[in-house]
Design a protein around this nucleic acid. Structure first.
Length: 425
RNA sequence: GGAGAAGUAUCGAAGCGGUCAUAACGAGCUGCACUCGAAAUGCAGUGUACCUACGGGUACCGAGGGUUCGAAUCCCUCCUUCUCCGCCA
């Protein structure tokens, strides 16, 4: 959520920045109109309340003095009615303003390339060389099915399209990846491991920006008005919401494995085969809660932390910075990490690392105090996948496949797997 | 799921429908004094947000409603925690 004060004071720049994302259905001009109205109403009602407080205090005094309070009470009753009326109006305007602010995306960082979509993203760096195959390589869905470690058909029978059953060494590999990633983040990169709820309430989803705009993409439990998490970013970022954190505690580094649930509404026909786009997938997520002046350094480190996973697995990747038009709703700046996927013949997104600055912190009300006497300030929050496990699984199958259909296990995973290859039984 | 109890500022905790609630009291924290220094002690200060004609004003006692001239206090709904029972990995 943007600061209404900032919108007021720097209106032209904020508006220009938002509009660099491309067309949106939000009306920024209206925030000022509503805020003006809010201020007027507040001034009016607060003056009346001041009078009400003052006059009401006279009643016990008058009673004590034996005076008649009937007239004053009648007067105050009228005043009270007027205040109630104005209070309703204030509440309405405030709600309308908040609802509007909740639909306005974050202002992109000025360094993000201006552009309308992913075609304007800019490659920052590359690591590793895509493998040249001297045999006809297969896609991971065929490899997985042939090795009998992935079962898409029976998953469809259980649940529907875009679900997968991992079987035998497939399940083992998925679990190995989760453990490998978590160990790396915890032991070498200083993150605190968390296991969070996979179901969260509406307020929590609002805090990170999934709601109110993207409710259609989320799995909703109607009876209790709760949601299946679309990413661990949601519970991890909101973990300290509504708190004023002691500055000495910062920065906070959290990591968690969760399954992620997404309806993938609007992506019909895209990536229909394989593990790339599922309704339920596993992900290890990293979240940072930091002081504002450090957040861009932290973003670089966060991105490096995610890259380390791919480097240790020996998977070729590139890092791109998203254009303003492709940057997510809550983010000010985002690096995507894309892994080389032979079946696609291109790099495929496997991690997304974002600095949301104070956008989520405002929504979730996460503040900190630099020292005992300082005023509370909003923190900056960052999140990044480290990594999407299913896509990593797919990348390993495809990049490490052998001519006979077997798959070599990357060095770093062998301790978790207890073997160095998966082959047909 | 059933019965009961409780949610007050950083923590503990008091609080009759108003006149010592701008939330007592205790602890913590900050500053000062005392001290070679520390402890102990003493004194002072110490919530958040919004509005502002910068003089002040308003709101917040789990959340949201209601009654009243006036609500932390009375009523209703919901949430959370604790205890007991039931069920259960």
């Amino acid at each position: 959520m943007l600061d209404i004060k900032r919108i007021r004071e720097d209106f032209d720049n904020v508006k220009k920045s938002i509009e660099s994302r491309g067309k949106g259905d939000y009306d920024i001009d209206r925030t000022i109109v509503l805020d003006d109205r809010r201020r007027d109403l507040l001034a009016e009602v607060e003056a009346l309340k001041a009078k009400q407080n003052k006059e009401s205090k006279r009643i016990p005094q008058m009673k004590k003095a034996g005076e008649d309070t009937t007239e004053l009470m009648a007067e105050l009753k009228e005043l009270s009615a007027k205040i109630s009326e104005l209070d309703v109006q204030v509440a309405e305007v405030q709600k309308e303003l908040r609802d509007l602010l909740l639909t306005i995306p974050n202002t992109p960082n000025p360094e993000s390339p201006i552009g309308k979509d992913d075609s304007d993203n800019v490659e920052i760096r590359k690591w590793g060389e895509p493998r040249k195959f001297d045999f006809e390589h297969k896609a991971h869905w065929d490899l997985g099915t042939d090795l009998d470690i992935l079962d898409f058909d029976r998953a469809a029978k259980l649940s529907g399209a875009r679900f997968t059953v991992y079987k035998g060494m497939g399940a083992r590999l998925e679990r190995a990846l989760i453990n490998f990633m978590l160990n790396l983040h915890v032991e070498e990169q200083g993150y605190t491991e968390m296991i969070t709820p996979f179901i969260v309430n509406r307020e929590t989803m609002e805090g990170t920006g999934q709601l109110p705009k993207f409710e259609d993409d989320m799995y909703h439990l109607e009876e209790t008005d709760q949601f299946l998490v679309p990413t661990a970013e949601v519970p991890l970022t909101n973990f300290r919401n509504q708190e004023i954190i002691d500055g000495d505690e910062l920065p906070l580094y959290f990591t968690a494995y969760t399954p992620c649930f997404r309806k993938e509404a609007g992506s019909a026909g895209r990536d229909t085969r394989g593990l790339v786009r599922q309704h339920q997938f596993n992900k290890v997520e990293m979240v940072k809660v930091v002081k504002p002046e450090t957040s861009y350094d932290e973003l670089e480190k966060l991105t490096n932390d995610a890259e380390a996973v791919l480097q240790k697995l020996g998977l070729p990747y590139r890092v791109i910075v998203l254009s303003t038009g492709d940057t997510g709703f809550s983010a000010a700046k985002t690096y995507d990490i894309e892994v080389w996927m032979p079946s696609y013949g291109r790099y495929v997104e496997i991690s997304s690392c974002s600095n949301t600055e104070d956008f989520q912190a405002r929504r979730a009300n996460i503040r900190f105090r630099r020292d005992a006497k300082a005023k509370p300030e909003f923190v900056h929050t960052l999140n990044g996948s480290g990594l999407a496990v299913g896509r990593t699984f797919a990348a390993i199958l495809e990049n490490y496949q052998n001519e006979d259909g077997s798959v070599t296990i990357p060095e770093a995973l062998r301790g978790f797997m207890g073997c160095d290859r998966i082959e047909k039984k």
